[in-house]
């Protein structure tokens, strides 16, 4: 079951993040970013779908991708806490995306040549998407960090707000079929700090890093997100959509 568990962790990360990103659709600061943020969301939800489908197959209990996404409670969701953080503003959203993609790009890169052909297939597609997310979110971090007094202040506020949440992403998963996340941490920090330097932003002092997501212990926001997301499936058990 180690593989199943690892796939669910990954799938939940992608779906919860996609759910957050899709909240922007129709509300972005400029129409061009409505399209960009929707592309981000489509990428990660698409990956979540492939991961759930594979997890369901690995589990072998006849559940579908939608059963896994829509019929598990918040205590069964294993996403890291970072991805459920609210959008707050454009600075928070771009920073959250940048943190996540900066881990997932090297993660998928390491999985591209996996012996597991399904994982290799998912990785091959996702690695390119994540590279683009790093680039686009990174562009915005530099612009917001360096732009105006207000944008700099908002970017710094986002860094402070998300600082307790990035370390959890590197919690090792006990599955040999997937790359070791802990090993990617130093590279991640170096890349993030390089963009911060370009943006004139400082990497803050260490703070207490929250964990719990991988054990299904979340903040309160996830339960509300899932009750919204799952409502039709819950209200009409067994219906086809």
């Amino acid at each position: 079951m180690a593989l199943y568990q690892a796939l669910i962790e990954l799938a939940d990360d992608h779906l919860v993040l996609g759910q957050r990103l899709s909240e922007w659709c129709g509300h972005a600061p400029i129409l061009e970013e409505d399209l960009a943020l929707s592309n981000f969301a489509l990428d990660v939800i698409g990956t979540a779908r492939s991961l759930y489908a594979y997890a369901a197959e690995v589990e072998g209990k006849g559940r579908s991708e939608d059963d896994l996404a829509y019929l598990r409670s918040e205590r069964e969701y294993l996403n890291c806490l970072l991805v459920e953080r609210p959008n707050v503003d454009f600075a928070h959203t771009m920073l959250r995306q940048f943190y996540f993609a900066s881990l997932m790009e090297p993660f998928w890169q390491a999985a591209v040549n996996s012996d597991d052909k399904v994982i290799a297939g998912i990785a091959g597609k996702a690695v390119k998407e994540m590279a683009y997310h790093i680039r686009h979110a990174g562009e915005w971090i530099v612009r917001l960090g360096d732009g105006t007094e207000e944008s700099g202040a908002r970017m710094r506020a986002a860094i402070v707000a998300l600082h307790p949440y990035w370390e959890e992403m590197f919690t090792p998963c006990e599955c040999d079929a997937l790359p070791d996340r802990a090993a990617l941490r130093s590279g991640w920090e170096a890349n993030v700090k390089a963009v911060f330097a370009e943006a004139g932003l400082e990497w803050p002092e260490p703070v207490y890093g929250h964990v719990g997501g991988r054990k299904g212990e979340h903040s309160e926001v996830l339960g509300r997100m899932l009750s919204d997301m799952q409502y039709l499936q819950r209200a009409h058990p067994g219906a086809t959509w």
């Binding site: 899709s22 929707s38 939608d66 997100m225 919204d228 409502y231």
Partner: peptide
Amino acid sequence: SRAPSLKRKLALLAKVQ
């Protein structure tokens, strides 16, 4: 946010996009 399946969610999002 409330689309009842992942397939429907992607299609709706792509459409609104």
